[in-house]
Computed example of a mutant assay.
Amino acid sequence: MTFIAKEATRRIRLTQSSDGLSNEREILPRDCVQIAWALGMMESDNVSVGDAFVYLVDAINEYWITRSGRPSQPLKGWKCADLVQMATALAHGRLDNQSVLSAVYEEALRRLRSRNGLSISEISILLWSQARMHLTKNFGAEFAEFPSAASQALLQRMGRSSMKMPPQEGANVAWS
Rank of each mutant, 00 (worst) to 15 (best):
M133G: 02
R160F: 00
R67G: 06
P147C: 05
D82M: 02
A171N: 14
A171Y: 11
R25V: 15
F139L: 11
G170P: 02
T66K: 01
R113S: 03
I125N: 10
M1P: 09
M165D: 01
I120S: 04
A141I: 15
G159E: 13
G159A: 13
A149G: 05
V33T: 15
W175C: 04
S114Y: 08
E7T: 08
L90D: 06
G117Y: 04
M1R: 13
A8E: 15
V47T: 09
I65Y: 01
A149L: 12
L101T: 07
A141P: 13
R11Y: 11
F139C: 06
V57R: 07
L118T: 03
S68E: 00
R160E: 15
E106G: 04
S148G: 13
H134L: 08
M1Y: 09
A52V: 07
I125L: 12
L109C: 07
P29W: 10
F139V: 08
G50H: 09
I65F: 01
N23D: 14
L135S: 10
D45G: 09
A149T: 08
T15P: 00
E106Y: 04
A5S: 05
A171S: 15
V47Q: 11
R25T: 15
T136G: 04
H92V: 01
Q85N: 10
S22W: 05
Q152Y: 03
S129K: 06
S18I: 14
P166M: 07
R113Q: 06
R113A: 03
Q168M: 05
R113F: 04
G140I: 13
T66M: 07
I123E: 00
L28T: 15
V104C: 12
L21M: 14
T66S: 06
A87H: 02
M41P: 02
A59G: 03
N61M: 05
S99L: 00
A141R: 13
D19K: 02
L135P: 12
F143S: 05
S148H: 15
N138Q: 12
A103N: 09
V104Y: 05
L95P: 02
A52T: 10
I27D: 00
R160I: 12
A8W: 03
Q16A: 12
E169I: 03
E43H: 12
T136W: 03
Q168P: 00
S119E: 13
